[in-house]
Write a protein that binds this DNA or RNA. Structure first.
Lengths: 213, 213
DNA sequence: ATAGTTGAGAATGTATCCAATTAGAAGATT
DNA sequence: AATCTTCTAATTGGATACATTCTCAACTAT
């Protein structure tokens, strides 16, 4: 049984926005997408509405769809919200993480430290953080956090490109602290370490206004 | 110029969900709505997707649409998120509130204290809180908060019905503290007072499991 | 009686066509 | 040169018809 068309279209477009194939501000024309997928415009419209819900696409009535774009202050706000939500989320998740998951988290911290490729770094970092939330039940909180990760993905990539990975020692130490607290099931400490990690990232990002031209 | 059809349909349905005409769990049939508005099913589908983004409607592929319903733990989570986001939002808002807005806030605290009607209380309470955020710029943070207010509206009403308004002295005192901090432009104090207000509400709600039958 | 199955009816999903709106370029005006 | 109109092509919005899928009640078998 094939999954419904709008979901397939949305999944593909989501992937292309996250991996940078579609850049923020870029226009999305319904008929072009429809032709690509061999479908009519109808399911494409539904897919665009789905992506709007993810915060990845911005729709304007009678006008069209664009890949969402954050201003400098909106990006800062996104990180302020992360600082408050992700510590809560990780503390809900930790008690339910399986040993397979914590093993993978341990492995990820190591891989993140070793990789020299920006795209690998982004992928592994994303997997580490989102996997650390896997123990939390699905719901609003997880939705919000995933949505923020989606909308800020482009700016993480832009930042990674101007910042030599070899100089990310601080990031690696922070990941180590978060992992340590997770392994010891110390939810409060994990929250604090995570809050510090996100806060420092926010401040560091704010020093690079050139990312928002 | 008439506003687009999906927006109109969504606005009406949103209103009906918020005022309780449509109850959580109730099914929404596209064709019935379409007929009511003298439109085709197409704009109705768009409207339902909009409402899904607001968290008011839950869609299931090939199956239909239902008014969203929160479990007890989801409602608790909603309040935990409010505790963390609304203090941030109010502190961003306060510096930009106009004197007309702070005057209205003062008036609202008074009206909330005096009203004996549940629907009035709900309306005024909602106006007070959301107006206190009017100074904050539109964006993700405000969207998230409004979405939580939407999805939890039904449970606020259900709680108000089992709790005599005359016994809401604590609520009135908390509102007074929040207002005082707003008028003095003390953003930090306003955040603390608001956090306490939401936290106490969460704990009080948790004592009434019968709301989630 | 209870559980599982099947089929008719109802509701959703998709395609196509036409109408309404907008964006963007070419031209006119200051 | 810069700004404001005007017009046309392109794009989105909406309605109808049809295909697909699911729901749910009636029925069968255990």
């Amino acid at each position: 049984m094939a999954s419904s068309s709008p979901s397939r279209v949305a999944a593909t477009l989501r992937e292309e926005i996250l991996n940078g194939t579609l850049a923020p501000g870029e226009r999305i024309v319904q008929e072009e997408i429809a032709e690509r997928f061999g479908a009519s415009r109808q399911p494409v419209r539904d897919a665009l509405r789905l992506l709007e819900g993810d915060g990845l696409v911005t729709l304007k009535a009678n006008s069209g769809a664009w890949v969402s774009k954050l201003s400098e202050s909106e990006c800062d706000e996104a990180y302020l919200v992360r600082e408050r939500l992700e510590p809560l989320l990780i503390s809900k998740s930790i008690p339910n993480l399986t040993s397979a998951q914590t093993q993978r988290l341990t492995q990820l911290v190591d891989e993140i430290e070793k990789t020299k490729d920006i795209e690998s770094f982004l992928r592994l970092d994303r997997e580490f953080h989102l996997l650390s939330y896997a123990g939390a039940s699905d719901g609003m909180l997880k939705d919000f956090v995933e949505r923020i990760w989606n909308t800020t993905q482009h700016y993480r990539r832009a930042f990674a490109k101007i910042n030599d990975l070899a100089e990310s020692k601080v990031t690696h130490m922070e990941h180590g602290l978060i992992l340590d607290a997770i392994l010891r099931k110390d939810t409060h400490q994990a929250g604090l370490a995570l809050e510090g990690h996100i806060r420092r990232t926010r401040v560091t990002l704010a020093e690079h206004r050139e990312l928002f031209v």
